[in-house]
Design a protein around this nucleic acid. Structure first.
Lengths: 138, 138
DNA sequence: CTTGACTCTAGAGTTACATCCAGGGTCTAG
DNA sequence: CTAGACCCTGGATGTAACTCTAGAGTCAAG
């Protein structure tokens, strides 16, 4: 049913929504296997590569680095035990995101307080924002 | 009361909690003024530089870029009208942080759902995490 | 005076993730 | 057959904020 036909790099780039250069970059980085070639040297892909590219894009959206994605791809290919690894990595990512959110929240609250306390005019010495930045921690 | 004494780069690095190279880097980048020099060429600083370095560090912790910090430093030196600018920049930063938190929250929730749905074992085809990453978006 | 810690400069390297370029070959629609 | 779109390689470039190197000069303690 599916087209097992051969696709050029431009076509898969188009349908996966990534740049051609990015695909070659992923190949160099080992995220994509080396594809077969036409006699002319043109790379030939199939639909599977599109899925793989989508995988990479989604994982990146979830905040995984390319190194982590390489791992995920390896795990996803393991018939046995791969799923545990994937779940672990995902949980670790979730934890990292939670920590990042908490940290940003702290920063946000501190900044928000300073802004509320700042009259928005007057002398620099009276600006709580500037004071907070300069003073030897109260 | 304060020591107007001259401090070497190593000393201010120590007391401001930044690396020596970083100080020279900030100088090149215009975040710190060129200090006076001993005849030997050694840089000489005073306590004010330590405050300034602390300012930079704190602002960085709040997520300002060095470009933005350069602006803040300029604004903080303006006798008139600087405070408005500082407050504006701080508000913009707050907005950016809020947006970043919201984005991370979305990612977090998506990932969390996938993890909850994943049994943590079994075949890769049955792992919702892997499925979500690979499938042509439902 | 010697030793070891400190400082100087100019410039290159790092990380992560691409993105762009030149100079050339290939493919396909008309 | 030809124009224009597409693809190839190897290497350079970009961003942000440092970080490091080499080779040489300086300083303070003993």
């Amino acid at each position: 049913m599916n087209t097992p036909a051969s696709l050029t790099i431009g076509r898969i780039a188009q349908s996966a929504g990534v740049a051609i250069d990015t695909i070659r970059f992923y190949e160099r980085e080992g995220l994509l296997p080396e594809p077969r070639r036409r006699p002319s040297g043109y790379r030939e892909y199939d639909q599977g590569t599109v899925s793989r590219l989508r995988f990479i894009r989604r994982a990146k959206d979830l905040g995984f680095t390319l190194d982590e994605i390489r791992e995920l791809l390896a795990l996803s290919a393991e018939r046995h035990g791969g799923v545990e690894g994937v779940r672990e990595r995902a949980a670790a990512r979730l934890k990292a995101i939670d920590e990042r959110i908490a940290e940003l929240q702290r920063v946000r609250d501190g900044l928000s307080e300073l802004i509320d306390a700042c009259p928005g005019h007057g002398a620099p010495e009276d600006c709580p924002i500037l004071k907070a930045l300069t003073e030897p921690r109260p």
